[in-house]
Design a binder for these strands. Sequence first.
DNA 1: TAATTATTACTGCCATAACAGCAATATTAG
DNA 2: CTAATATTGCTGTTATGGCAGTAATAATTA
Lengths: 90, 90
Amino acid sequence: MLIFTAIKVKMAQSQELAELIRLHRKVAGLSRIQLAELAGVGKTVIYDIEKGKETIQLDTLQKILKVLNIKIVLTSPLLEDLQNSKNEKG
Amino acid sequence: MLIFTAIKVKMAQSQELAELIRLHRKVAGLSRIQLAELAGVGKTVIYDIEKGKETIQLDTLQKILKVLNIKIVLTSPLLEDLQNSKNEKG
DNA sequence: TAATTATTACTGCCATAACAGCAATATTAG
DNA sequence: CTAATATTGCTGTTATGGCAGTAATAATTA
């Protein structure tokens, strides 16, 4: 488990999707095939993503992220404003 | 600008991508064509997304989100642990 | 109201994402 | 070490996402 220590720093900063997936998969103790089966996608997609492909489809990515317990959060100034004005009421 | 008030609640909860994009586009005062041109994608994609298509490609989505100033953040228990142990050092 | 312009909805075509299958490369057991 | 197993890397094929062009609809103006 120590092997990952090196990756950690890089990971947390870069947010590179490829390494994010790879790290989570490794920590979960899954092979690409296992992850693919759990996510209900082909094994090639896992390979592609970890190779850095950015043109994968959103729903495919979501299936994979779900298995790895990774959440996608969308934020924006507008959304934060809405969130605030909701608490304050208007 | 009040017209959006109704959407707000639904929006903030559902995080539905379609409405998220649509709202941001409207607030920015952009037509689909304008948004498409700014993002460097075809107009059809905007139409598809706002229609609820989930099989768009990640890079295409990112181009659009960038124009609308929406950020994608990925979170997970593992990532939070790494973040914490980084501050405490080990 | 009709005419004009802008925006949105739809369709066929082409490039390619996702797939299955196979080759190459670790990893483990004897 | 070799054999057996697991994992990863790669390729050809196929279904489809993204595109340009067009039709339909909505908004604007006279």
